[in-house]
């Protein structure tokens, strides 16, 4: 079922609200992983607001779809998504990163409702997601497991252990994403540790690979629809080409904004930038939507 223009625009509106809430959370917290938070937000938006089967009143519902955010440092965006969704009080975001808060820069699955795995140490999410997906098979359940990796974390060997397992066990109820923003803490991914030919690597490990613009909701939805309809015995990896800090023009695509602080002036500038960015996104949806 192709994404209608109405639905596209609704998802753009939600994505914009979540970008604004992420920015606000960064401001409240004083600092945060804003770059990677902004790059992954569209993926989170389409999962939580179009695809995932969830019960707002019961985050632990056993038949729910799972989302394992392997790039756990994107909690600065993930926490707003989970609060806005209704799993946690939005007021909690005002305590993000503060002493004594339940909500730190990597979310704790035992403290924050709706978090399917405590991540932060990189290279952990895909193995966990493979386990969650295999469990559905053992338990006879039909939930989907989604896993979102950062590109920099693909340096970790454990991802490739899990990639082999996903292909070996034919884990087709798992849909994986890489937030390919091409930045990591010390520089650009291709300068620090080359990932390319990145898609070929996943293909060689036994995945069907789709490459999309990770800041294009329509493309994201088409790739997820493709993965849902996959009838082969290979798992699907969606490489999402994104921009670190997407929507905030003065930090966009700059690896130095892996983690940063916004004073009041920068915060106001970022808000203005997000408005313009949203307008552009809406215009694209209006033009390209059907």
């Amino acid at each position: 079922m192709p994404l209608s223009k109405t639905e596209w625009l609704a998802l753009e509106k939600k994505a914009n609200e979540l970008r604004e809430l992420t920015l606000e959370t960064t401001h409240w917290a004083g600092s945060g992983h804003i770059g990677g938070g902004m790059s992954v937000l569209d993926i989170l938006t389409v999962l939580y607001h179009k695809y995932m089967k969830l019960d707002k009143n019961d985050p632990d519902w056993e038949d729910r779809d799972r989302c394992i955010l392997s790039k756990g440092h994107a909690a600065i965006a993930y926490a707003p998504v989970l609060c806005d969704f209704g799993f946690n009080d939005v007021e909690m975001l005002k305590t993000f990163n503060l002493s004594g808060s339940k909500m730190g820069m990597h979310l704790d699955s035992t403290k924050i409702r709706g978090v399917d795995a405590s991540t932060g140490s990189l290279g952990h999410g895909l193995p966990i997601a493979v386990g969650t997906a295999l469990a559905a098979r053992v338990l006879g359940k039909d939930y989907w497991t989604y896993c979102i990796l950062g590109d920099g974390e693909c340096d970790e060997g454990s991802n490739w252990e899990a990639a082999m397992a996903a292909a070996n066990f034919k884990v087709t109820n798992l849909i994986s994403f890489v937030d390919r923003n091409r930045c990591m803490i010390d520089g650009r991914t291709e300068d620090v540790m080359k990932l390319e030919p990145f898609a070929d690597k996943w293909t060689a490990f036994g995945f069907i690979v789709k490459e999309v613009d990770g800041q294009n909701i329509k493309e994201l939805c088409e790739a997820i629809d493709f993965a849902h309809e996959n009838k082969t015995d290979k798992p699907v990896m969606i490489i999402c080409n994104t921009k670190k800090g997407a929507g905030i023009d003065f930090i966009e695509d700059d690896y130095l904004w892996h983690y940063g602080a916004f004073d009041d002036e920068k915060y106001e500038k970022a808000k203005e930038s997000l408005k313009k960015y949203y307008a552009g996104r809406v215009a694209r949806a209006e033009k390209e939507g059907e």
Binding site: I68, P127, A162, M164
Partner: peptide
């Protein structure tokens, strides 16, 4: 899971999270 201990633990964690 083959000779992949990190994966062994991660997969087990995911399974336990799902009720196994």
């Amino acid at each position: 899971v083959g000779i992949a201990e990190q994966d062994l633990f991660g997969i087990a964690a995911g399974m336990a999270k799902a009720g196994l």
